[in-house]
Design a protein around this nucleic acid. Structure first.
Lengths: 412, 412
DNA sequence: AGCCGTCGTCTCACGCCGTGAAGTAAGCCG
DNA sequence: CGGCTTACTTCACGGCGTGAGACGACGGCT
């Protein structure tokens, strides 16, 4: 019940700045005129706010467009070069660190393969910090122009106390053997940049929502099918986190009580029927070790008419449809985006079957309002999605550049 | 992207009034001092705002409490008699219309049994309007003191265009044969009072959240087990509605793909395993027609050791636990409240089994943060929950009494 | 070429807000 | 009865968005 997020008149300006900035960021160059119509602000206020943002260098004018008979409208856009973002994808085999400008152009990236110490958190932190230093140095990026470092990791992320400089962030990654790893504290020891950590599937979902197949939807679920299965829930335009930021664990939804055993220990999880690991294991006839090749082989066999492969995939489509029907019934989204590397690989073949199953399993009314589509970004967008974490903070704050005068002593 | 809910400085005052009013409503009598600490407002603003509210008659002073050595603090509370609320419960056998004051004291109520035309929407509307007129007249309530009429109905409620005076509200009640019934328009023809309609299960959930076992939780799911099965999802303190207000249809979640056929037409729905209708039907050895008696008989048989009854209930607990595990995984709530008449009847016996099953089926991390409890209000709270719909609107608007100068011509 | 109408943008007086400091009320203790 | 403590009120101040009017900057018309 505290605070309500701003009591004073100055908070109004923060809000207006945020609205204007978001409008320009997501809906391209806009004139002050259009900005007023879109934000509900009066022409005077738009002039005021844009003036401030221009003075801060956060936006810039870019040409003008004639308007029949009248004064041409000056277009405004976000100044792409004003600040930079770092996105980190902690995968199962490598760590990827990417540097973006505000227009999400990738300025530099660095892939660092995990050694055999792969599951050791200390090792991962070393790689992240090394990659971070590398991309900053190669591009000559001053630390104070970096809005923050977003990190997508496997497992559940407990955000800890807010405003605690990220130090309270703890990761529970059962799949990679991370048990309550204090990632925030570990990273904070090596960099003074603002830190943001979230589940990798969730950052990928965020990327699809902002720049991919989810664009424009206020209520959506991004269903992520990879080795395992996860989901990213967007409620009313914002990520739904739940009480301890672990909402959206769709893969361990029960679709068959008493059914197949899942790697999480329970029986009948969705993941045990449609996750790539489970599919490849059940298919059997594939070289072990390389899951992607295994899934591709399964798909090829099905295309060639192998009845076992066809059956397996048909069953996966059925279960996926049932799982999606659950999402439709529970969340009533306007869009369901199927992503993840396995989802994108299988999607073109499975989609008709998924839609058919979901039609039968979901309630008619919510299903009629939901669109099931494939993701459009590909799994490499995890780093981009991670970079949206500091970006989101930046936009919500109305373009407040973080004060980091303490940067000198800690280095980057 | 429109509006952001208030740009001008005057909206700040609306927000402050709402915060103060909510504080007083939910946390009993409070001094101006405490109000300031709780809301984050400065002492000056609290004085200002409470002065306004006092002048409007919305709050009142109620005694004072000594404070060691200093001026005693004057306590403030919401003026219970300043306005009234109507809650309507459209059940399967009767319509209940209840009139409350702001302190949720029931001033009058009227039960109107459905005739054999029970499933006819026109008949239901007649009963609602008759009950409404009756409770208003018996208590001598002037229509302009009524904040609004909240109606809880079976089925999915499409809220239509907002701000359209409720005229756009349409109900899809497949269980009672309502197909796109324009309930808003039908009711509007008979009363000029503000109208609010929502699913009955959702209004019951709202009541549990505000006054029952859900009090204080910001993220919760109220699981409602009756003849069918539903749920009410509270995300960040507010009902989660989804894109077309049908979120929370938990009963038709798939717990056993290819399993029992459900009355919705699909197979393997949770409702087909744990709903009272399904349980009684499978039990068989009960007088048909009276579901509640049937369920009580099943329960009694199980208590007496009848193995078939025990098996049925154990299975129900297993499935309920699995369904709740799904809710825990997907929504990551801090509390799960089990309500509904069947849920409350079976709860004491089933709860240990439910908890055991959920422990096994849910992921450890979110499950550790979730508490599974029984509801504390009973199924008759549907009308109370319905009355919270106009109340919620009233509180959120900072106590703006609706302007209804047009009331004279339309009557109540 | 000059003028006019059109439309985008800027400027500014106004009413309102919350803050924080100073002032006031209302009880206690000695 | 006076001093002390605590709750509340008053008020000057900086700041906000609005809406009306002023000010450009262009196309088209004469």
């Amino acid at each position: 019940m505290h605070g309500r997020g701003g009591n004073t008149v100055r908070d109004l300006r923060t809000g207006s700045r945020a609205t204007v900035l978001r409008g320009l960021y997501f809906d391209g160059p806009l004139s002050r005129q259009e900005l007023g119509a879109r934000t509900g602000l009066s022409a005077g206020s738009v002039s005021n706010v844009t003036g401030e943002l221009l003075a801060d260098g956060l936006i810039e004018e870019c040409g003008s467009v004639g308007s029949d008979g009248g004064r041409p409208r000056t277009m405004l856009r976000v100044a792409a070069g004003r600040a930079r973002l770092v996105g980190v994808d902690v995968g199962e085999t490598q760590v990827r660190v990417a540097l973006f400008d505000l227009a999400r152009t990738e300025l530099a990236a660095r892939d660092l393969p995990l050694s055999d110490r792969g599951r050791d958190a200390g090792h991962v932190v070393e790689l992240i910090l090394a990659g971070l230093a590398d991309v900053l140095e190669r591009t000559g990026t001053a630390p104070e122009t970096v809005l923050g470092v977003g990190v997508g990791v496997p497992g559940i992320v407990d955000q800890g106390a807010p405003g605690a400089d990220g130090r309270g962030i703890v990761v529970h990654g059962q799949a990679v053997g991370w048990d309550a790893v204090p990632l925030g504290r570990l990273l904070r020891a090596g960099t003074a940049l603002p830190l943001f950590v979230d589940n990798g599937a969730k950052t990928l979902g965020q990327a699809e929502m902002w720049f991919g197949a989810g664009r424009g939807a206020r209520h959506a679920v991004v269903a992520l099918v990879g080795s395992g299965v996860g989901a990213c829930v967007i409620a009313d335009g914002a990520r739904y986190r739940g009480a301890s930021s672990s909402a959206g664990e769709w893969g361990h939804t029960k679709v068959h009580v008493g059914g197949r055993r899942c790697r999480c220990g329970a029986r009948g999880c969705l993941e045990a029927y449609v996750g790539a690991e489970a599919l490849v294991e059940r298919w059997g006839a594939a070289p072990p070790g390389d899951e992607k090749a295994g899934l591709a082989a399964l798909l090829a066999a099905a295309e060639a008419g192998d009845p076992a492969a066809v059956g397996l995939l048909d069953e996966a489509a059925e279960y996926l449809g049932a799982g999606i029907a659950d999402l439709v019934n529970l969340f009533n989204p306007e869009r369901i985006v199927i992503g993840g590397w396995a989802g994108l690989l299988l999607g073109p073949r499975l989609l008709p079957g998924i839609r058919a199953a979901a039609t039968g399993y979901a309630l008619r009314f919510p299903y009629e309002h939901a669109l099931i589509v494939l993701g459009s970004l590909g799994p490499e967008a995890v780093a981009l999605g991670a970079a949206t974490l500091p970006l989101s903070d930046f936009l919500d704050s109305g373009g407040r550049l973080p004060d980091r005068s303490h940067l000198t002593d800690a280095g980057a």
